[in-house]
Simulated assay, not measured.
Amino acid sequence: MGEMNIYGVYVPMLLVLAAAAYAVLRLIMRLLDQWVEQGWVPMPSVFYLCLYVILLGCLHWLHTAVF
């Protein structure tokens, strides 16, 4: 998968992708909190965990497809 050199420190690319997926998740959570409050999502924590894993997979696929 690779590494990224940030000011002389090698950071695993999976860590960078995980941080980016979490940032995107926090943005999406603001939009989906209305559904959670209305009761459309029965188990929000499991829903958000699944959404995070899907986002991380999509970012990983996008990273491997582009680079």
Rank of each mutant, 00 (worst) to 15 (best):
M1K: 02
N5S: 13
Y7K: 15
G8T: 08
V9F: 11
Y10P: 01
Y10A: 11
V11L: 04
P12Y: 07
M13Y: 10
M13C: 04
M13S: 10
M13I: 12
L14E: 15
L15Y: 04
V16Q: 02
V16K: 00
A18K: 00
A19F: 09
A20I: 11
A21S: 11
A21L: 01
A21E: 02
Y22I: 05
Y22V: 08
A23C: 08
L25V: 06
L25P: 03
R26S: 00
M29C: 03
M29L: 05
L32T: 08
L32M: 08
D33G: 09
D33Y: 00
D33S: 12
Q34T: 10
Q34D: 14
Q34F: 00
Q34S: 14
W35N: 14
E37N: 15
E37L: 15
E37I: 12
G39I: 11
G39Y: 07
M43L: 09
P44E: 01
P44S: 08
V46N: 07
V46E: 05
F47M: 06
F47S: 05
F47Q: 06
Y48Q: 09
Y48T: 02
L49D: 10
L49P: 07
C50I: 09
C50R: 14
Y52F: 15
Y52L: 12
V53D: 08
V53I: 13
L55S: 02
L55V: 01
L56A: 12
L56N: 09
G57S: 14
G57L: 14
G57M: 13
C58H: 03
C58F: 03
C58K: 00
L59P: 07
H60Q: 15
H60C: 12
W61R: 06
T64I: 02
V66M: 06
F67G: 04
F67L: 02
